[in-house]
Design a protein around this nucleic acid. Sequence first.
DNA 1: AATTAGCACTCAATAAGACAGAGTGCTAAC
DNA 2: GTTAGCACTCTGTCTTATTGAGTGCTAATT
Lengths: 348, 348
Amino acid sequence: MLDERKLKVLLAVIDSYIVTGEPIGSRTITKFYDLGVSSATIRNEMSDLEDLGYLNKTHTSSGRIPSDKAYRFYVDNFFNNSIIEIDRNRKEQIKRYIKQEYKEIDQLLEDLAKILAHLTKYTAVALSPQIKETKIKHIQLLPMEQNQILSIMVNEAGLIKKSIINLENKISEDNLIYISNYLTRKLKNKTFSELVNEISNGILDDYFEYKNDLKRLIPILSGFIEDAEDMKVYADGITNILEFPEYRDIDKAKEVLSVLEDKDKLIFALTNNKLEEIDVKIGEENSHDCMKDLSIITATYNSEGEIIGKIGIIGPKRMNYIELIKTIWVFSESITDILNDYFNCNER
Amino acid sequence: MLDERKLKVLLAVIDSYIVTGEPIGSRTITKFYDLGVSSATIRNEMSDLEDLGYLNKTHTSSGRIPSDKAYRFYVDNFFNNSIIEIDRNRKEQIKRYIKQEYKEIDQLLEDLAKILAHLTKYTAVALSPQIKETKIKHIQLLPMEQNQILSIMVNEAGLIKKSIINLENKISEDNLIYISNYLTRKLKNKTFSELVNEISNGILDDYFEYKNDLKRLIPILSGFIEDAEDMKVYADGITNILEFPEYRDIDKAKEVLSVLEDKDKLIFALTNNKLEEIDVKIGEENSHDCMKDLSIITATYNSEGEIIGKIGIIGPKRMNYIELIKTIWVFSESITDILNDYFNCNER
DNA sequence: AATTAGCACTCAATAAGACAGAGTGCTAAC
DNA sequence: GTTAGCACTCTGTCTTATTGAGTGCTAATT
């Protein structure tokens, strides 16, 4: 579609703009990129590229900057999974940071977001597992004082969802233990969202000696499970954005920072895309209008072969996509590894 | 110490600077504050106030701005607990926001920080209970797969601390239940930090049939309790700071935002003061150098009559201390109320 | 003796003009 | 098809002038 020279010119513009953040003109290109033709020729090519939608101008006599289409073209053509020979060194480096054993995945994600932000100088975000889609490993009901019971559910990621439930009548401790075991046996390895269905489909309807007690619990448990929807997102390095010259202007900065501070918007940005290992959303491709000047790269992480969460970076569209994709890939792999090493509480 | 006219002038300067953020001169004071004397007189008074350390100039011919000493004087003289007739309306307003029942105090704090930030247009911070100083209400050990056990501790604030522990040899389920009950009986209503002491002092040394199993657990539990130190802090409205004209300058903004984004610094700022119901730190009074241009107002919240956490707001030193103190007071009271209503799992 | 009018002086912010630098687009020559 | 050359454009920066809000001092007034 683009002949070789046009391609070279386009890459030169992208490359230059990524590092300097300034529009680049034809003469500067001839000076810094060896294309073997004069600036006038470059000028003509650039004019063509502008007509084709790959380049923009900031004003009539300015140099050119890449359009969203140009970045998309760049990413699509110069990134493919083969590029990612897992960078062992970098992976080791990350793992060195993560010395301590993590008791909770949330702490791990928070720390990793911090490291990722520090390493890339962008804003890093991490989405904690969508509880609904993780598998239950253990259910336990515990007696508290009065008529309160504590319900605990442990999932495959070691994440523990717990709640204090108020009942009208007391259930004896022995019964609770019995019911716990029964529930665990019946529901183990189902996801939380399956669980809600199964309960209403009567999976728990067979004969069971504490059935009456169980019946009183079920509506409470279901309700409790339904609000397992709440996802958590960890963001770090929000202020890194201010280092970019495009946000020297405080009003622009305000606009983008308030988006980055808004967890709902972050969650939306992280969930509203395909569940691909690596996903890149450039500018206008973001469904949220407030993010049309930003790009976001996300990678998924897995537990037991299932995608359970995401980690990503957000920044101005002008970013070194290929490098960042590599970095984030390493992070997502590291999370998956760590989940397998530390949190797995299942029959290996 | 200050005669009445000086006091009036000082209050005029503070009042004006709080609302405009601009240095104020003698003529402007005569125009907007009715002091019954000419600008020349005000000028002389202002010069005196400067000598006394209450006012500063930004340059030789600028108007005056209040010094830290002036704010301190203002807060000390015009705030006393009697000012706070609890504003019932505002309290009801806040409680309306908090309709849903909270299962976890952390969620409550996060939401309240958001509301407080929204209401005040400052950065709001909330410190979750210092686990070490809260009382244990329940201890439970649960068997997982293989040699893992799950340990759960519930405290008075409904906050649940849990951990997966790897053991070398399995402990039977019955034994675990027995041990759990024993631990709960022995350690209930002690704080986590007392617990560490008591364990090493041999509180668990009396005869107990599963003593051998217990012995294997104790070092693990102690270690686990010790890192209960990690406090969580929730911050919201960080970007509100950018609305203040003093942070039009991006470098100043960067400086302060990176402080507000740094959870360690926030925790330090929230913990490094007296445990008073209301504490106000103005500029230089903050021990951290990076906060010398900021003020922070904190209020404590209680559970069972014991202070267990704090909520606060951070902003430029130019803030309406009295109003904000009132607001934050209402918030801290609301948290205390909610903790008593929802989370209390003790023998009332 | 305290207050005030008057005046010289200062500093910051703003606006206007000049100018340099990097760029485009077009035309004519190679 | 390429390129040299040139007129033109726009931004950013530098200088200079001007205005406005302020101070501090002195001398006159109450």
